[in-house]
Design a binder for these strands. Structure first.
Lengths: 108, 108
DNA sequence: ACAATATATAAGTATTTTCTTATACGTTAA
DNA sequence: TTAACGTATAAGAAAATACTTATATATTGT
């Protein structure tokens, strides 16, 4: 369901975290430095983002490296494609393109 | 800001209302019949959707006809286009297409 | 082994959001 | 003109969400 995705990205802090993590992989501590909320708050946001696969955790000892997963946005794209019939013809090829977009892991 | 859009669409009832209104124009009363929340709740959801231009109100006497405005999704599309560089090359033309998509009113 | 570090979880509080009922306002029909 | 109808707004209750502090757990460096 794309409502879950919208909810996840509908919070300013969480959206900012996602955007950061799409630029570079960061640990929880590094994220905590960059935002003015507590470390637990960051962890909680990460859990939400992880639940809908918008971020990926790479454990390395006691460090948790997180990176953004833009592929996780796919359900949103798919949902939006439903509405392309309301947009100009120029975009008519969008859904075709989307249909052929692979499901699995993508290169970054 | 696309967070506002996400917030607006991040509620199940509101998303369902938007989807209904993209299919057909409906009055507040008709919407109230279709959902199991009170009429004021519907009006409040409509206000949120209207604020971010996801619906349009057509007044006709005491009736308020609402219809969905899928064009209002554009900020979302634009934002998503930022992430296309993380997607397969197949989609590389997406942003070009989006850039040329007109801003004004579109045909339905 | 022990202290320090990195993160997660628990529990509670504060804030925001969504709902309700009551009511106000404008429009139409009788 | 007045009663009924359609919708919006106000006010407050209920529910959901985002935060905090305290603490647990695991890992590393000394």
């Amino acid at each position: 369901m794309q409502v879950i995705l919208m909810k996840a990205l509908g919070d300013d802090t969480r959206l900012a975290i996602f955007e950061q993590l799409c630029k570079r992989e960061l640990t929880v501590t590094q994220l905590t430095e960059r935002f003015d909320v507590s470390q637990p708050a960051i962890s909680q946001h990460l859990r939400v983002l992880k639940r809908c696969r918008l971020v990926h955790e790479r454990r390395e000892g006691r460090f948790a490296h997180y990176r953004g997963r833009p592929e996780g946005l796919r359900p949103l794209i798919n949902w939006l494609a439903h509405y392309q019939k309301f947009w100009p013809e120029r975009l008519d090829t969008l859904s075709a393109l989307l249909k052929t977009m692979p499901e699995g892991e993508k290169k970054r």
